[in-house]
Simulated scan of single mutants.
Amino acid sequence: MAQADKIILSDLAFYGYHGVMLEENSLGQRFRLDIECGVDLSTACQSDDVNQTISYVDIFSVIQTAFEERRFKLIEALAQHIADRLFDSFEHFEWVRIRVRKPEAPIPVVVGEFAIEIFRERTNR
């Protein structure tokens, strides 16, 4: 990871039906996502021109569509799907880091959450 610039969308909340257990598929649950997208922001920093960066709204729209367009048993697969959609949509992204959290997984725990995190770099496609 050569560059340190990134666009961050954190603590995004979605309601979905991802999971292995029957309750997760029928009742659904809340999910929290943290997304970091590695992109060179130096031109935008120097120019103060909105056209030289990537809109948070556009990034969110891709994430939301990817989250909702199909159901996954594993949140690992969900995270990979979101990463793929981000790379497909934004050619300047060098890498993405995605954390998917299940704060209400159907497991008897009083406090806490379960999560995965993936880091993917763009490969020549």
Rank of each mutant, 00 (worst) to 15 (best):
L86R: 05
F60L: 02
F119P: 11
I118A: 04
I107T: 11
D40H: 07
L74P: 00
L86K: 08
E113K: 12
Q52D: 14
G28E: 05
M1I: 14
A13L: 01
M21S: 11
I35C: 11
S89M: 12
R85C: 06
L41I: 13
A79E: 00
G16C: 13
D40A: 09
F87C: 03
F14G: 01
I75N: 07
R120P: 03
T53R: 15
T43L: 15
E94G: 02
D5N: 10
F90K: 05
D40E: 07
S55M: 06
R99V: 04
V96S: 08
L22T: 12
E69C: 13
E69T: 04
L86A: 04
L22M: 05
G19M: 05
I107M: 08
A4R: 15
D88L: 10
S47F: 11
K6T: 06
V111D: 07
F60E: 01
F31Y: 06
N124A: 14
R99T: 09
Q46F: 11
K102C: 04
V20D: 14
T123E: 12
R120E: 08
T65Y: 11
R71G: 10
E113D: 06
I35D: 07
R99I: 00
A115H: 05
E117D: 07
N25G: 08
R122P: 03
V62M: 00
